[in-house]
Amino acid sequence: MKGEKPLYKSSRFERQLPLIGSEGQKKLENSTVLIAGAGGLGSPAATYLALAGVGEIIIVDDDNIQESNLNRQFLHSAASVGRRKAYSAESTLHELAPDASIIAHPIRIDRTSARQLVRDADIVIDALDNYETRFILHDSAWAVGIPYIHGAIEGFSGQLTSIIPGKSPCLSCLIPGTPPGGKIPVIGATAGVIGSMQAMEVIKFLTGTGTMITGRLLIWDGLSGRSEYLKIGRRKNCHFCSDHGE
């Protein structure tokens, strides 16, 4: 956790203080959240966390903004096409929440950078778009014992689970294989639902309220309005968490 800051003097948090208390608000202010990906999931997740009063947000993305991102990635405006996503996210978040400290890293997540990034964070949001990078980041978060809030989307569907080292199965237990990739179509509102739920998981964890979606995978389908929870147990002989233990 970072050094303490004075409690917010304005009425900015008036409507949420009855829910989380000034203690909860203080916890948010003293926390650092690492958001990996400033795209479809990263936009709502980072926005709601900055607005909620999270003290420090580290946002990582090595991509540049493309016009085709704009149906869902509302951290970036049409005028920002071609800019680095990390820097565009930083300026948008700074405008929305001037008191939050936003740290932008326009870098690729690999084994080395992941280890550095998780070291400064209390919790990680997986707003990535591929499993290769997800596993790298997940393994680093697991190694330092911080929660990893996994989200992913396709079309009108999404999934989410909160992985808490020592308490829940790991990402490898959950995802033994992935279907063939390709260019994935997505409706912006799908990213909005899952990314907002990721922010909610972080708020619950940091303020110690509610029940995390852990040990179960939320499966959500916007087209039918259905959702399911898939119970996820530890996989026998999981190559990752049976080696790394609790």
Binding site: N130, Y131, S157, T178
Partner: peptide, 28 residues
């Protein structure tokens, strides 16, 4: 309960059962 694809041949169904299938999605 989650059923591993490898174990799916060991589980006998009853009339009226429901099975749910989901592919992990990967976008962000």
């Amino acid at each position: 309960e989650r059923i591993s694809p490898i174990d799916a041949g060991l589980i006998t169904l009853a009339d009226g059962d429901l099975i749910i299938l989901f592919p992990p999605v990967s976008g962000g």
